[in-house]
Design a binder for these strands. Structure first.
Lengths: 217, 217
DNA sequence: ACCTGAACACCGTTCAAGT
DNA sequence: ACCTGAACACCGTTCAAGT
């Protein structure tokens, strides 16, 4: 309204809007299809216009990873036990991966000790402050759980991409006993079972069986 | 000797030799430094000469992943219990990751149900045929263990690259309590502890405690 | 002042020209 | 026949020119 003349800024543009458009390109056609040119084309602006909002492609990727990780439920709930909170986050991470299978490789590749992923770890840590989990135990729990979850999501993402290829084809190739077995290894049941393995292992090894009632065993 | 004229073939060249040279470029300067041009330069041949041995860059990458996975000890030993064999493979995988931290991302990104990684899974499966592990239990064991190991190695690889940056700098940036804690989460002890968590969880959940002696508990 | 096209230094790969 | 340089269609990004 108040702004006069031709050089009107792109008011609909922002770092967040650019990251969102970038993510949708990845969701549709994969990470390799996200170029500064394709992104600018989708937003209807010149390529160089993007550089007024984002320093370079790497930091755009960082924005997208951050956006993906904020989709994961890490709300604290002191009513829950630590393993219940962990399960909730794990299932939410799985839902995010199912929503963005082609983008998950970016999350897996992001350095774990830098802002986007580190902030996520911090949020997870905050879930456990009111659950009588000592800080050093949390590190043990999370490092094992995070490793398992990251590895699982990589496999899940691949399986989903095989099942429903992108516009630009990536189709499946072979299938035998073991590969079929490993494909089933990313089902929801298998995920729940794997999560149980990790949590039971953590309870036995790290948490000293504090959850067991006296008459167990 | 017997070959006459100028157009002598590059007898030192082969798919394997090209993959080896490619891996050494990655080890030194990272995956992004491996280009068909840089690789040809290192081998002292024209760029296009590589295409007489390798169809394209993607299959070169596949060759490198295959080479990395054959470095991992998957020799069968029917004297061992299943968890001992699993530990041996796990530690060997860790050693490979320490040797090639900059290359591990390729292993993590390789599709689990296609030749290089699938063959590796097959070799691991063969380790357990004489260890009275039912086939369906093996799939449960390996899918959890593989997910954990892949996730752990990604973190380890990142930690090593932070500690000793490439020729082309990648240096560390910040460090506080949690990030320091997570850094310690990739130590050899932490790896052993994490592996114990997974194996104990598997014994309790999948293997039905068959390893426990009667007077336990 | 704000925006962006042309240009630069790279890629992987095709194809035709070298010997 | 065997090898490979020039060229093409892309990248991300710099910089100077548009309005």
């Amino acid at each position: 309204m108040s702004r006069a003349g031709r050089p009107r800024v792109h008011e609909h543009l922002s770092r967040a809007a650019i990251a969102e458009a970038g993510l949708s390109i990845i969701d549709e056609d994969g990470v390799e299809a996200l170029t500064m040119r394709s992104l600018a084309g989708r937003l209807g602006v010149g390529t160089m216009t993007l550089y007024r909002y984002v320093p370079d492609r790497d930091s755009l990727i960082k924005d997208i990873v951050e956006s993906l990780l904020t989709e994961v439920d890490t709300n604290a709930d002191s009513q829950e036990t630590w393993d219940q909170s962990l399960r909730r986050t794990a299932y939410s991470l799985r839902a995010m991966t199912l929503r963005h299978p082609r983008a998950f490789e970016l999350v897996a590749a992001a350095p774990v000790s830098e802002p986007p992923v580190l902030d996520y770890a911090r949020r997870v840590a905050l879930m456990h402050v009111d659950q009588s989990v000592p800080d050093e135990d949390f590190v043990k729990i999370w490092s094992v759980a995070d490793a398992y979850l990251t590895g699982f999501m990589i496999m899940l993402a691949h399986a989903v991409m095989r099942a429903r290829p992108a516009a630009t084809g990536e189709g499946p190739e072979d299938a035998d006993d073991l590969s079929a077995g490993l494909a089933g290894a990313v089902s929801e049941e298998a995920f729940g079972a794997g999560l149980n393995v990790v949590i039971e292992g953590l309870q036995a090894t790290v948490m000293g069986d504090s959850k067991r009632s006296p008459n167990d065993c």
